[in-house]
Amino acid sequence: MIAYKFLRADGSSVYSAFRWPLPKSSPGAWVDAPIDPCRSGIHACRPADLPYWAGRSLYEIELDGEIVEAPTKLVASRGRLLRAIAAWENQLRDAYTRICADRAHELALGVSPALEKWDAVIEPSIPEGPALLGFVAARIAEQRGGAAAYRAERARQSAWLAERLGV
């Protein structure tokens, strides 16, 4: 199964600090780990999960062995990085951050009474990057329309990312 994985700029995992064998002219080496969601296993995401895990570098990963589907991620017993997704670079990260900020403003101000306290946090959050701005937009949607609105906003973000990343 093909999935996606965000890593730090140095190729290490955000949560375990594990340094992945990176692909060069060929895929990286296989990595094996027993499955125990959030504790052990190869964690990756589907296109729909991308906004929840947006990070510095993005890779296409091949999963094999046992694969468990969780609400916002996949966990497998085996995986290897196939290639870096070059489209996820500074310009696209900045563009995604900006569209999330613009959408957050739209959601905060397009309701009566306006959610001014929420609106005030949007611009100062921009330097923190795409993961936070995606969350802020979804959180404002949730403030307006509950859990379903939160998920709908996340789905909107996923669609934007999937289209531009070609995944």
Binding site: V14, C38, Y52, A54, G134
Partner: peptide, 18 residues
């Protein structure tokens, strides 16, 4: 490693953005 999986996922999502 004592958090239930769903709560651990929410924990990791928060760490990713904060």
């Amino acid at each position: 490693g004592e958090l239930p999986a769903e709560q651990a996922t929410l924990f990791e999502e928060h760490i990713n953005l904060c």
